[in-house]
Lab assay of single mutants.
Amino acid sequence: GSPGIQSFLPPGWEMRIAPNGRPFFIDHNTKTTTWEDPRLK
């Protein structure tokens, strides 16, 4: 199987799917959430 997208996120980050189907990202380091992919910064 191919590695999940989770493995490509920075340490402490998690990806979830919102009720509307959009992915969002949780930064457990700062306890914040964002719509922006942290890998694109």
Rank of each mutant, 00 (worst) to 15 (best):
L9F: 07
T30V: 03
I5S: 12
R22M: 12
T34E: 02
K41N: 15
P10A: 04
I26K: 02
D27W: 02
G1I: 12
G21H: 06
A18R: 05
R22E: 08
K31Q: 13
H28F: 09
T33F: 12
W35F: 12
W13L: 01
G4E: 13
M15N: 01
W13T: 00
K31G: 14
M15C: 09
S7V: 11
K31P: 03
D27F: 03
D27R: 01
D37I: 04
Q6K: 05
E14I: 05
L40F: 13
A18E: 06
N29T: 11
P11C: 07
I5M: 13
P23H: 09
P38C: 06
R39L: 06
P38E: 01
E14Y: 03
K41E: 15
F25Y: 09
L9Q: 01
G4M: 11
R22L: 12
F8S: 15
S7Q: 15
E14K: 02
N20Y: 03
T32G: 05
M15V: 08
P11S: 11
A18F: 05
G21Q: 04
L40K: 13
T30P: 00
L9P: 01
D27H: 07
N29V: 09
I17Q: 07
G21I: 00
P3Y: 09
T32L: 10
D37C: 08
R22W: 08
P19K: 10
K41G: 15
G1P: 13
T34V: 05
Q6N: 13
R16Y: 09
P23N: 06
P10D: 04
R39S: 13
P38W: 00
K41M: 15
H28I: 07
E36W: 09
L9I: 04
W13D: 00
E14V: 06
T34P: 00
G12D: 02
N20Q: 03
K41H: 15
K31C: 14
D37A: 07
F25Q: 00
K31V: 06
F24D: 00
G4T: 13
N20K: 02
P11R: 10
I17Y: 13
N29E: 08
